[in-house]
């Protein structure tokens, strides 16, 4: 720091010392605070608005929607749209509502989450603690693979699944989710296991534990938080997937998102906006619940899972 800036700095310090200084004894209604909180409240309203509109629309009857404005709260609350969305709404192919899609999604998500986490956690553990020649090379390919647009690999996978007889089945989709979840989850677990003290691993080896023994007895019990984070990433990611669902399953095994899109964007019949919104909320309910319940862990998950795009 040159002398002149030092003096200028000293001057500034002196001038600050006169006035109210520092962030601590701040006035509650300073212009700065009004600006910050004002902006944030407006922004928060903007972000919250669509959820609000979804909810109020889903609770109105169609006549009320046609007459009123979308922001107005329902005059007469009705749950009929929800019932209809769940069990009667038509997709153009069938009129079974979202329920079938919901159960398909459950049957896809549960095994996908378990399989992908099981594979990735063991991979990450091997990469972190049992490095072997070439492991890093495969890992690098895996990470770069995360950036390849899915469209590039869609078709080869169709052929592979057809060859092994899984095309169009739930298990085929489970496999696809496990494959595409692998880069980010492996990275997540590798980094986590690397951050654990290496001496614990060494101590366990001296104590005679082997690969699986150390994984199950030492690593797993210490890693519950990261498993929760991985589950959050996977449940939301797989539940929200549309592309793989539409490519690798058939109409009777379509997941909820595909079913939802087919219901709402069906060109047949009269548009029932309230039913559509009820269906939309129903589809978003699982990830939203996870989001609001998990809080900070979700943030940690998306910060790690951001690479997935």
């Amino acid at each position: 720091m040159t002398l002149s800036t030092a003096i200028a700095g000293a001057d500034a310090v002196a001038s600050r010392l006169k006035g109210p200084q520092g962030p601590k004894p701040r006035k509650r209604f300073s212009r700065r605070n009004i600006f910050i909180y004002g902006t944030l409240i407006v922004v928060a309203l903007y972000y919250a608005l669509p959820l609000y509109v979804m909810i109020v629309t889903s609770l109105k009857g169609m006549p009320e929607i046609r007459l009123g404005n979308i922001f107005a709260p329902p005059v007469e609350i009705t749950f009929e749209p929800w019932v209809k969305a769940w069990s009667e709404a038509c997709t153009g192919l069938n009129c079974e509502g979202l329920s079938r899609g919901f159960w398909n999604s459950v049957r896809i998500t549960v095994p996908s989450v378990f399989l992908s986490i099981a594979i990735a956690s063991v991979n990450g553990y091997a990469l972190a603690n049992w490095k072997f020649k070439g492991a890093e090379a495969f890992f690098t390919i895996l990470i770069f693979g995360a950036f390849i647009p899915y469209q590039v690999m869609l078709y080869p996978i169709v052929i592979i699944l057809r060859e092994i007889g899984l095309y169009g089945t739930l298990w085929g989709l489970v496999l696809v989710h496990s494959i595409f979840g692998m880069p980010i989850l492996t990275l997540l677990f590798r980094n986590y296991f690397t951050s654990l003290p290496e001496e614990l691993f060494k101590a366990a080896r001296v104590d005679g534990a082997r690969f699986w023994g150390i994984y199950f007895r030492i690593m797993l019990p210490m890693s519950l938080p990261i498993f929760v984070v991985a589950m959050i990433i996977q449940v939301t990611g797989i539940w929200n997937d549309f592309l793989f669902g539409v490519v690798y399953t058939k109409p009777d095994t379509y997941p909820m998102t595909v079913q939802l899109n087919n219901i709402v964007n069906s060109v047949q019949g009269v548009k029932e906006y309230n039913v559509n919104m009820a269906a939309t909320i129903l589809t978003g309910l699982v990830p939203l619940t996870i989001y609001f319940v998990s809080g900070k862990l979700f943030v940690r998950g998306i910060a790690a899972g951001a690479v997935k795009g």
Binding site: N240, D241, P287, L288, F298
Partner: peptide, 14 residues
């Protein structure tokens, strides 16, 4: 952040 938990399908439809 909550919209990020929703799928693009839900986002698009809303």
């Amino acid at each position: 952040l909550y919209p990020f938990a929703l799928s693009f399908i839900v986002t698009g439809l809303v």
